[in-house]
Amino acid sequence: QEPLTASMVAAALPHEQKQMIGERLYPLVYEIHSQLANKITGMLLEIDSSELLLMLESPESLHAKVEEALAVLQAHQAME
């Protein structure tokens, strides 16, 4: 699978852009946390596309964001 580039994303329709990025992001998130991969990917997709593209290229920053999303989710669940 060829890497997703900013120009590929820019060429897509606005509602397709996040889906395109999500398709790449989901398997990576799934490797880190399979049970919450759908939820965590959905949370990460609210981040700017340009930042998401950088995260796809950087396992360290992706990992940090997944951990951050998990912490936010756990804090949210604890409040309910």
Partner: peptide, 21 residues
């Protein structure tokens, strides 16, 4: 620092990814 991530975000449903068994 407070996270900007939203715990109420909609779940993402992949079209193409098949989950490994």
């Amino acid at each position: 620092r407070k996270s900007t991530l939203n715990p109420n975000a909609k779940e993402f449903n992949p079209r193409s990814f098949s989950q490994p068994k």
